[in-house]
Amino acid sequence: MSLPRTVWNTVKSLVVGHAVTAREIATRPITVFYPEEKPEFPTGSRSVPVLKVNEESGYINCTSCGLCERTCPPGCIEITQAVDPATNKKKPWPHLYTLDLSHCMVCNLCVEACPFDALEMLDVPELATYQVQDLKFHKEQLLDLWKTGKAIRIAEGQPMPSK
């Protein structure tokens, strides 16, 4: 390529590049001031699986069957079945139900595995803690979370509800 042509190409490409940035200066920023101004999270974004309280009975649906525990790939769910101290018989609800969110992949497989509609995925995006142990949620904490969050249980194969 001849020298004048190179110079012309260079100058042209530089001017065109600067025109792009100049136009971007004039347009509105796209950032959000996070703590003050919350971005709108789309419905259906998953953050934590929690235990659910049955609206009619007022009890949790979980029967401590252990399917979620077995399905969970990283093994972050731990269930201890309740035992009647008098008769030493097993009861159909969990004595302890622990979810270690620091291991959880938020893959939704436990919710899909549950046959009793006892688990729900929440969209509570702000779950960060200073201590990793604080991400270990017990049964009561999971129920509290369920009260604060918005559940997004969708049947498999159905479309996600859109805003």
């Binding site: 939704n108 498999e156 194969g157 159905q158 479309p159 996600m160 859109s162």
Partner: peptide, 10 residues
């Protein structure tokens, strides 16, 4: 398959 379907709006 896929976990869920997509809507027309999407």
């Amino acid at each position: 398959g896929l976990r869920n379907d997509v809507t027309d709006a999407w």
